[in-house]
Design a protein around this nucleic acid. Sequence first.
DNA 1: CTGGATCCTGGGTGATACTG
DNA 2: CAGTATCACCCAGGATCCAG
Lengths: 131, 131
Amino acid sequence: MSKPRAKLTDNFPGCPVESTLSFLDGKWKGVILYHLLQDGTLRFNELRRRIPAVTQRMLTKQLRELEEAGLLSRTVFPVVPPRVDYALTPIGRSLEPVIAALRLWGKEHVICENGRKYMVMPEEKAASKAA
Amino acid sequence: MSKPRAKLTDNFPGCPVESTLSFLDGKWKGVILYHLLQDGTLRFNELRRRIPAVTQRMLTKQLRELEEAGLLSRTVFPVVPPRVDYALTPIGRSLEPVIAALRLWGKEHVICENGRKYMVMPEEKAASKAA
DNA sequence: CTGGATCCTGGGTGATACTG
DNA sequence: CAGTATCACCCAGGATCCAG
């Protein structure tokens, strides 16, 4: 199945938010899409290097799910050593505004420090500037 | 902890996409935020009615997590029968562009039919489905 | 280099029953 | 009405070893 968690009986039609989220479900899909949007085409280990915390197993899994969903294409070069390129499909690329929105909000409202995440209230930022 | 799945050791700072996604993690957060954005303030059962597939347990849980994250406020009225209002905080409301992007993409690229989800290629819509 | 196969576990999620 | 308490299941996700 292409949906890892979604039981396909979630809710009635009419919740595109849920639908979209279901394609981003999984711990690494968002990051993968982000890097693919940034760099165009990436090989397996190039992706790994950009997402240090991911394991091969999970990277493979999430890539396959994204591929099955039609969001990215996987190109195998029959050479030795093996080479596999990953790139977004047109649909995958159409997620750009979504990823951009996610990224923007994260930059605005979350502080990442040593791997920890802290929320930042806009008022605090404004207040510190104004007051 | 406020993050259900995120191990906080995911990746180095620099991935706001991941950060944002971590706040939307969980099966119902997106939908909850969406409805709260739509309707302003909602009571517990009003939310339930808008998300038929959710159980009380999960609705409660996700609401608490969103509250702990600071995205929504929970107002208890000491009356009988009980009444609890949920509304977005300013930060919660700041997620509007994100939810909007998610929703827009879903409307453009996903068809919900009888609870099932089908991807729709923009090209296929433009050009008649020939395959 | 790019995976596949296997084992394992944490906790997310559901179902149900109960309560002020 | 708005939850809490419990039990049980399933599978996402990590670790490790193996393979072409």
